[in-house]
């Protein structure tokens, strides 16, 4: 019982972060119909930056994290402008470009940051007794909280603000939105960068717990894709549910079946969903 609750708590934590990271992919798919294969690399980049800002520049750790997200956001703007913009309408081209970019970034990280894991300092220390059953790291609880807050803010932005309305309009009907005066290029650039920033947010939140290396990015990207497919391409609500499901399944699966097969369960879900219900659990394109 105690174990089960622990696994569920872990699953919940990972689920929230999976959801957060997948929201980045989903946003970009929904609006631009582009799958960002370098998603995981941006997560890792933010992890490195937050470690760098905190340790080398001596910034407070949260400020470092915020700065890291901002830097990745800018990087996203740059990537969209230089590489993605020319490929609109050609799904295959953007797929190939972002895949190549992911390999380039992985190898660049290896060169710059080395192969060894790096982590920013913990935000908080100590642990708390949960349900009167087990002690749980405060850093993990903080990560859970931070992830939930970022997701909530994102939903507010998409549902309530002018930017959100514009984005939803473009996702639904690009030509129509252009006719009523929305600049689709600007929206694309902004949403691509926002998608990258969400990957970065997931990165800075998880990096103190799971240190980053140049190659963890692959797992991060794949996990995000699984969640996006599970929840339905472009559906933000679906992402959250999908993330939670995947987090729980992975943790329970690796605890009770086999830890070597931890990621296998995710892929299995992906294949299953794609075969049985390719629109995902909640349909597609409902921003």
């Amino acid at each position: 019982m105690q174990d089960l609750l622990l696994y569920c708590t872990n699953g919940l934590l990972l689920g929230v972060i999976y959801a957060l990271s997948a929201l980045g992919v989903s946003l970009i798919v929904g609006i631009m119909n582009v799958i960002n294969f370098s998603h995981g690399e941006l997560y890792v980049l933010a992890g490195y930056f937050s470690a760098l800002f905190a340790r080398a520049l001596g910034l407070p750790v949260l400020a470092g994290a915020g700065l890291a997200v901002a830097v990745v956001f800018l990087f996203g703007l740059l990537v969209e402008r230089t590489l993605i913009r020319n490929t609109y309408g050609n799904d295959m081209a953007s797929l190939i470009i972002t895949f190549v970019l992911s390999i380039v970034l992985q190898n660049a990280y290896l060169l710059i940051f080395g192969p060894y894991p790096q982590k920013p300092p913990n935000w908080v220390d100590g642990s708390t007794r949960l349900f009167g059953l087990f002690y749980y790291g405060n850093q993990r609880l903080a990560a859970l909280g931070a992830g939930a807050v970022v997701i909530a803010v994102l939903f507010l932005v998409v549902k309530k603000t002018w930017f959100g309305k514009t984005v939803r309009a473009v996702a639904q009907d690009r030509e129509m939105a252009a006719m009523v005066g929305v600049n689709p290029d600007g929206v694309n650039m902004l949403s691509f960068a926002l998608g990258c920033a969400l990957a970065a947010a997931a990165g800075v939140i998880l990096a103190p717990i799971f240190p980053v290396t140049p190659t963890v990015s692959v797992g991060v990207s794949l996990t995000a894709f699984i969640v996006v497919v599970l929840g339905g391409m472009g559906s933000l609500g679906g992402c959250v549910i999908g993330g939670l499901i995947l987090g729980l399944v992975q943790n329970l699966g690796s605890a009770y079946v086999s830890s070597g097969y931890k990621h296998f369960f995710g892929f299995f879900i992906l294949l299953l969903v794609l075969t049985v219900r390719p629109t995902g659990l909640f349909g597609r394109k409902q921003l």
Partner: peptide
Amino acid sequence: IYLSLTTLAF
């Protein structure tokens, strides 16, 4: 995109 993702998962 679905084909790419499925083959990646496989």
